[in-house]
Computed example of a mutant assay.
Amino acid sequence: MMELADIINLEACPLNNVQFREACRDQLNRDGVLTLPDFLHQTTIDALVKEAESQKHLAFYTSASHNVYLTKPDPNLGDDHIFNRQISSSKGCITTDQIPADSGLHIIYDAPAFRDFACAVLGEDTLYEYADPLSSVNVHFAEDGKELGWHFDNSSFAITLLLQAPEKGGAFEYVRDLRDAGKGELNFKGVKAVLDGDMPVQCLTMTPGTLVMFRGRNSMHRVTPTIGTICRILVVFAYNAEPDIALSEAARMTFFGRLR
């Protein structure tokens, strides 16, 4: 089996280095996002793209409409209220159990060094895998026209790894700290300004092999439609701060089309 050093560029990203961890944590806390380009060796990128392409026929494709809060519409508000405005998202996804057992993705996800690094940067005591067999590591495919509409995350953080960029489009755009979910402040005015194109947004530059940690619970974000024949391939490493947590059955059916 491959060693972590065969997969991750530990010279560019020395996971066990205290100063490196502190710098990453400071950047995440300051900017709400951490990008680590050159996280993977080029040989790793090539191998993981080839692996993902070989499994793409197993992907479950979804096309859905939702509001930015990822909640059901509120019938007490009008159809034209920003809370009820519907946005489109579409992608293909393969699940943890569909990724080959010897994949470098499993090696990264399960490696104590990577999990300890993530804990140090995110300020978590421990990170646990999902209790269900589908949700811990997912590979997302966004072909021509696929997009991830504007939304806020329900979780406090997300960890992603870009494997392949499209010819055009597929840009990660965000507006930091647009709401305060902890206080129940939804900021309808600010959300409307973003959706109407009246507020400037930030764009995150990512090249293949870039690891991203993002705090999206209060920062609204989207991925613009992919353009061209090259599929955007993105890996999501999903962890929980508590053990024995499974993604809900409703969410599994929505995102994966099956429960197990």
Rank of each mutant, 00 (worst) to 15 (best):
159 I>F: 06
159 I>D: 02
160 T>Q: 06
160 T>N: 08
160 T>K: 07
160 T>L: 04
160 T>Y: 01
161 L>G: 04
161 L>T: 09
161 L>E: 01
162 L>C: 03
163 L>H: 10
163 L>E: 09
164 Q>K: 13
164 Q>Y: 05
164 Q>E: 13
165 A>M: 07
165 A>E: 07
166 P>D: 02
166 P>F: 05
167 E>H: 13
167 E>D: 12
167 E>G: 10
168 K>W: 13
169 G>L: 06
169 G>P: 10
169 G>K: 12
171 A>P: 10
172 F>Y: 12
173 E>P: 11
174 Y>I: 04
174 Y>P: 03
174 Y>D: 00
175 V>W: 08
176 R>M: 00
176 R>T: 02
177 D>A: 04
177 D>Y: 01
177 D>R: 02
178 L>N: 00
179 R>F: 00
179 R>C: 02
180 D>T: 08
180 D>V: 04
180 D>R: 04
181 A>T: 13
181 A>E: 11
181 A>D: 10
181 A>P: 09
183 K>S: 06
183 K>C: 05
184 G>K: 01
184 G>F: 02
185 E>W: 15
185 E>Q: 14
186 L>R: 14
186 L>Q: 13
187 N>P: 06
188 F>W: 08
188 F>I: 05
189 K>D: 13
190 G>Y: 01
192 K>G: 09
192 K>H: 12
192 K>E: 14
193 A>Y: 10
193 A>W: 13
194 V>N: 03
194 V>K: 07
195 L>V: 09
195 L>A: 04
195 L>Y: 05
196 D>F: 10
196 D>N: 11
196 D>G: 08
197 G>T: 06
198 D>Y: 12
198 D>Q: 15
199 M>C: 13
199 M>V: 12
199 M>S: 13
200 P>G: 03
201 V>E: 14
201 V>I: 14
201 V>R: 15
201 V>H: 14
202 Q>E: 14
203 C>I: 15
203 C>G: 12
203 C>Y: 11
204 L>K: 09
204 L>D: 02
204 L>T: 13
204 L>W: 06
205 T>V: 13
205 T>N: 15
205 T>H: 15
206 M>G: 11
207 T>V: 14
207 T>F: 09
207 T>W: 04
207 T>C: 09
207 T>H: 11
209 G>F: 05
209 G>T: 03
210 T>S: 11
210 T>F: 06
211 L>M: 08
211 L>R: 06
213 M>A: 05
213 M>I: 12
216 G>C: 05
216 G>Y: 04
218 N>R: 00
219 S>N: 00
220 M>N: 02
221 H>T: 01
221 H>F: 02
221 H>W: 04
222 R>F: 11
222 R>P: 07
222 R>T: 05
222 R>K: 12
223 V>L: 01
224 T>F: 07
224 T>K: 09
225 P>I: 09
225 P>M: 03
226 T>Q: 04
226 T>N: 06
226 T>V: 15
226 T>R: 04
228 G>A: 02
229 T>L: 07
230 I>V: 14
231 C>V: 14
232 R>G: 04
232 R>S: 06
233 I>K: 02
233 I>E: 08
233 I>F: 03
233 I>Y: 01
235 V>I: 12
236 V>R: 15
237 F>M: 11
238 A>D: 08
238 A>L: 09
238 A>I: 08
239 Y>V: 10
240 N>V: 11
240 N>F: 08
240 N>D: 10
242 E>K: 11
242 E>F: 04
243 P>N: 06
243 P>G: 02
243 P>E: 03
244 D>Y: 14
244 D>S: 12
